[in-house]
């Protein structure tokens, strides 16, 4: 359990952060600070140039006359961002104009990397989560039916799963993007990506679930329940579902990072969510320009975030698998 707790808390914290993006992000992710392209991460100080300790962290910035002043960070302050999204909203932290605080620097168009990372996480991680829910939901239903009913139903579902597993999903998505109108809104593009990834991905969980159902069906206690007059629905609910649940949970921890990566791949190649909506993939697109990334290391922030999230998910999947094995052995 302890093995699972750490990564699970980590995953939950990441989701909490991206869900709270409008509050945590200091800026609207689409606001272009056009005089600050590729600005490095802002240095936050607690000790000023005269060696004095400040109770509140601050940043240095020049005023209109060119003189440098210390501007304290303001916590839970109202935004000075004049964009439609940021106007008047409360943020975890910020700083008064003319100072700016870019914790992870800015991109080529002067957009705050931290804000884009948080808002982009909502898209990338959200697609992973929703597509997994769709794929796993469909996989659970079809896998249970195939395993429990058997016969030609089983054969039909398995044949369909073979076809779906053979589909090159990336090309399918490319074809879908080409078929969509050019002015497709971000929400519609997002929905289409989720649906295609979800539909293309049901086959693998369905096969696993079917295998579990078949194995459970053959056990003595299930045969005894059926013989004593329990309805198929009751057998499914009481005996099969608990076995399937742990498999589904492990599958989810494997599929979510996989589908997150799928969204990132699409956006990386410019066929995911369009500008100006951020996604980790579109942010990572800039890394194709090697010289730029080498000279401005903070542009690699979304790649670091992706690695972190993937590691958390792998640790979660690993812990879940160990747990399910342990449960199996104890039974």
């Amino acid at each position: 359990m302890t093995r699972l707790l750490g990564p699970a808390i980590g995953v939950a914290a990441v989701y909490a952060l991206v869900l709270a993006a409008p509050f945590v992000a200091p800026y609207d992710p689409t606001t272009q600070h056009r005089d600050r392209p590729l600005a490095p991460p802002t240095r936050v100080h607690v000790i000023d140039r005269d060696g004095r300790l400040h109770p509140r962290p601050f940043v240095y910035a020049e005023d209109i006359s060119g003189a440098t002043h210390a501007y304290p960070l303001r916590f839970f302050a109202r935004s000075s961002d004049d964009s439609a999204v940021g106007r008047g909203s409360r943020h975890l932290f910020g700083v008064d104009a003319p100072a700016e605080v870019f914790v992870f620097g800015t991109d080529t168009l002067g957009r705050d990397q931290l804000s884009r990372l948080l808002y982009g996480g909502r898209i990338s991680l959200g697609v992973g989560l929703l597509a997994t829910a769709l794929a796993l939901g469909a996989g659970l239903v079809l896998g249970c039916i195939a395993g429990f009913v058997g016969g030609w139903t089983d054969a039909a579902v398995m044949a369909a799963s073979d076809v779906f597993m053979a589909l090159p999903w990336l090309y399918l998505l490319l074809a879908l993007r080409a078929a969509l109108p050019l002015d497709v809104a971000p929400a519609r593009a997002l929905a289409s990506i989720v649906i295609v990834i979800g539909i293309a991905g049901w086959a693998r969980p369905a096969r696993l679930v079917r295998g579990v159902v078949l194995s459970v069906r053959g056990r003595d206690f299930v045969a005894a329940a059926s013989a004593s007059g329990a309805s198929p629905a009751r057998v499914l609910r009481s005996h099969v579902a608990p076995e399937v649940f742990s498999v589904a949970l492990t599958q989810a921890s494997i599929l979510i990072p996989q589908y997150t990566l799928a969204e990132i791949t699409l956006s990386f190649f410019g066929i995911g969510i369009g500008e100006p909506t951020p996604s980790w993939g579109s942010m990572m697109g800039v890394m194709l320009r090697q010289e730029l990334t080498l000279a401005h290391w903070w542009l690699a922030a979304p790649a670091a975030a992706l690695i972190g999230v993937s590691l958390l998910y792998h640790a979660t999947a690993d812990a879940l698998q160990r747990r399910s094995l342990a449960v199996g052995v104890s039974r």
């Binding site: 272009q32 056009r34 168009l109 080409a178 002015d183 497709v184 809104a185 410019g270 100006p276």
Partner: peptide, 23 residues
């Protein structure tokens, strides 16, 4: 692509919605 994103932002300021289609 950078130019398209800047134009998108400029036109947003006069109330025009622009989608960028990179093909």
């Amino acid at each position: 692509n950078d130019m398209a994103a800047i134009i998108q932002d400029d036109l947003r300021k006069i109330g025009i919605t622009v989608q960028i289609a990179a093909l």
